[in-house]
Design a protein around this nucleic acid. Structure first.
Lengths: 212, 212
DNA sequence: AAAGAATTTAAACATATGATTAAAATATCT
DNA sequence: AGATATTTTAATCATATGTTTAAATTCTTT
């Protein structure tokens, strides 16, 4: 009853291997071995390595970006609470899938079919409750692009970059894997504080004392 | 007199292609075509695709990390001036080599030979003038690891991540390539301001009003 | 100019890789 | 239980890929 179907076993193995080695570096024979299947089954179930890859990519992109709207759009949390939830949940998620962000960022960079352009993420962002909350705090109805840097890009930079650049971060800090994990735990609470202070620099610039 | 040697032409083509397609996705025939040489010359000059790759990697890693010490160690600039210089220079550099960070981060993640572990980057960081300046401002002789997050990891996150995640950032902000470039120009001055405010959150925590 | 060294060329090689094929095995339906 | 559909298997195929080889060409030295 707990047995995965052959199709799912292939997909799981492919997802892991594509993340580890990239598309070109992953052979169909690697996928067959890891999923414990006969090589020809990959073509039977998915028709080609390329088709399998596209399917895995779609699912993985959905996994990475798909939860973003819910963090930005909960009307019952404040702006700060949203950044707190985003930090905590994304870090928890990335700790379970440490290879995923690098894989996604690498593939969307080289992928000519524009998968994420089709997701209308900028609408999600500009029309989010988070953006509205910030605009209201500034006494306006809309945020501008520069404000999106602080509201979205900077938190995501602080959350995701250490995962993408883990060997580099470990080399710079001298932390081992365990230390790195602890660092990311600490950043769950630190990132919202830092971000609040970055937002405050904009508030100070506009001489507003509004508390969000 | 301006003629590049055959060896250099191969290296340049290889560097560009490895960044675009990765190691496995780049064929020796691609490199030969792009450098305008006969295929066998790759083996004549570099013995193998693997050896060529290792050489290109070494040079590229040096290019990416090699300038870091000079930004952290100039005794004639304040802490804030160092972050300003780091932001400006790294952003300028990355605008000329937009594919480089993703390539480096991807390869050091999968590279078992531990190239960057041998660089003793954490010594560079912990013993830097920057770290000393911060410790002095805190009335101590040394910084701890958490402080390195703010002094080094956070600025690097804010600087490098948008380049690594360019399609994602463009999708979230709705910016085109031109807009993205302008955004990075703005971040040259914004990142030091933001970082100063993050550091201030630590200063406030320790109830110190010291100005650095 | 001739000899020797270095570079370049085109073809061939040995192996790898994604895909196909046909038969065998298993599952499902009547 | 037999017929049919689906899944699996092992071998084979067609092409790709990194590398080698030997000859030709160019460069350097005497």
């Amino acid at each position: 009853m707990n047995e995965l179907s052959t199709e799912d076993r292939i997909k799981q193995a492919a997802k892991a291997l594509f993340q580890e080695k990239g598309y070109s570096g992953t052979r169909t024979r690697d996928i067959a071995e890891r999923s414990g299947i006969n090589l020809a089954l990959l073509n039977y179930y998915f028709r080609s390595k390329q088709k399998l890859f596209e399917l895995v990519m779609l699912e993985t992109i959905q996994q990475f970006f798909g939860t973003l709207p819910q963090y930005l759009n909960n009307p019952e949390t404040s702006l700060d609470e949203k950044i707190q939830l985003l930090s905590r949940r994304y870090i928890d998620f990335l700790k379970t899938e440490p290879d995923l962000p690098l894989f996604i960022l690498s593939e969307i960079r080289h992928n000519a079919s524009g998968l994420i352009e089709k997701m209308n993420l900028n609408e999600v962002v500009f029309k989010s409750v988070l953006a509205k909350q910030y605009a209201e705090a500034m006494g306006r109805t809309e945020v501008d692009t520069k404000e999106i840097y602080m509201l979205i890009i900077n938190p995501l930079s602080l959350i995701i970059f250490p995962f993408v650049a883990r060997p580099m971060v470990m080399a710079l800090t001298g932390l081992d894997q365990n230390g790195f994990d602890q660092m990311m735990e600490q950043r769950k609470t630190l990132i919202p504080i830092w971000n609040r202070n970055m937002l405050n620099s904009d508030l100070n610039t506009t001489s507003s004392n509004t508390t969000i």
